Amino acid sequence: MTAIEIVAEPGVPQVLVTREFAAPASKLLRAHTDPDLLARWLGPEGLQLTVDVLEPRDGGRWRYTQTDAKGERFSFFGLYHGTPSTQGIVQTYEFDRQPGRVYLNAISFEERGERTVLRQNTVFQSVEDRDYYVRGGMEVGLRASLDRLDALVTGRQ
């Protein structure tokens, strides 16, 4: 398993994530844009993910809902900017519990032979918004999600 690097510099409204996968960029892209695959890896442990809308094209919408064991629902949604490709994905990101706070999320895939480095750059409107995201369990959720993504794209899931 490859280490995940998560950088959230104090005072900077940004989170940078880096993770290397033993898979081509095409598999990572498919895992991000196929609703059945996305539901298998995205989100913290213990939450059920339902993909409500996934239109991976320029201007397309996406929306998914996570449901906990008590039935409480958390929805996330946004728009794609540009068509997702093996070069990367750019999308807005909103959380229903933080209305009007929009994040910009850019994911890049850099192939290195048989491996691909995924980099995710999430930019927030303010440091306070970023801190809310971090306090909400971002690191635990990201680590669990990327571990499941690794298992999926390498055939271990």
Rank of each mutant, 00 (worst) to 15 (best):
M1L: 12
M1P: 12
M1G: 15
T2C: 04
T2G: 10
T2V: 00
A3R: 14
E5A: 13
I6K: 10
I6D: 08
V7Y: 05
A8C: 03
P10H: 08
P10Y: 03
P10L: 01
G11I: 07
G11T: 07
V12R: 06
P13D: 07
L16A: 01
R19T: 11
F21Y: 15
A23C: 10
A25N: 02
S26R: 15
S26L: 07
K27N: 10
L28C: 09
L29K: 09
A31L: 06
H32T: 04
T33R: 04
D34S: 12
L37I: 08
L37A: 13
L38T: 13
A39M: 03
W41D: 03
G43R: 13
G46D: 05
L47S: 05
Q48P: 00
T50E: 15
T50G: 07
V51G: 08
D52C: 05
L54S: 02
L54T: 08
E55I: 08
E55N: 07
P56H: 09
D58V: 02
D58G: 10
D58H: 09
G60N: 00
W62N: 01
Y64T: 01
T67E: 13
T67C: 04
T67N: 00
D68E: 05
K70P: 00
G71K: 05
E72H: 15
E72I: 04
R73Q: 15
R73I: 01
F74Y: 15
F74N: 03
F74V: 06
F74W: 12
S75A: 14
F76D: 08
F77P: 00
Y80Q: 07
Y80G: 11
H81D: 14
P84S: 01
S85T: 14
T86L: 06
I89T: 03
Q91K: 14
T92C: 06
T92A: 06
Y93D: 15
F95A: 13
F95C: 03
Q98L: 15
P99K: 10
P99I: 12
P99C: 10
G100A: 10
Y103C: 14
Y103I: 06
S108Q: 05
S108W: 00
E110S: 14
E110T: 15
E111G: 09
E111V: 12
E114K: 12
R115Q: 15
T116E: 12
L118I: 01
L118A: 00
R119P: 04
N121G: 00
N121V: 15
V123E: 10
F124W: 00
S126D: 02
D129H: 07
R130L: 00
R130S: 01
D131T: 03
Y132G: 01
Y133H: 11
V134N: 01
V134E: 05
V134M: 13
R135V: 01
G136V: 04
G137V: 02
M138W: 02
E139G: 07
G141I: 11
G141Y: 11
G141H: 10
L142K: 01
L142C: 06
R143N: 11
R143C: 03
R143K: 13
S145I: 10
L146Y: 15
D147Y: 09
T154K: 11
T154Q: 14
R156V: 13
Q157T: 13
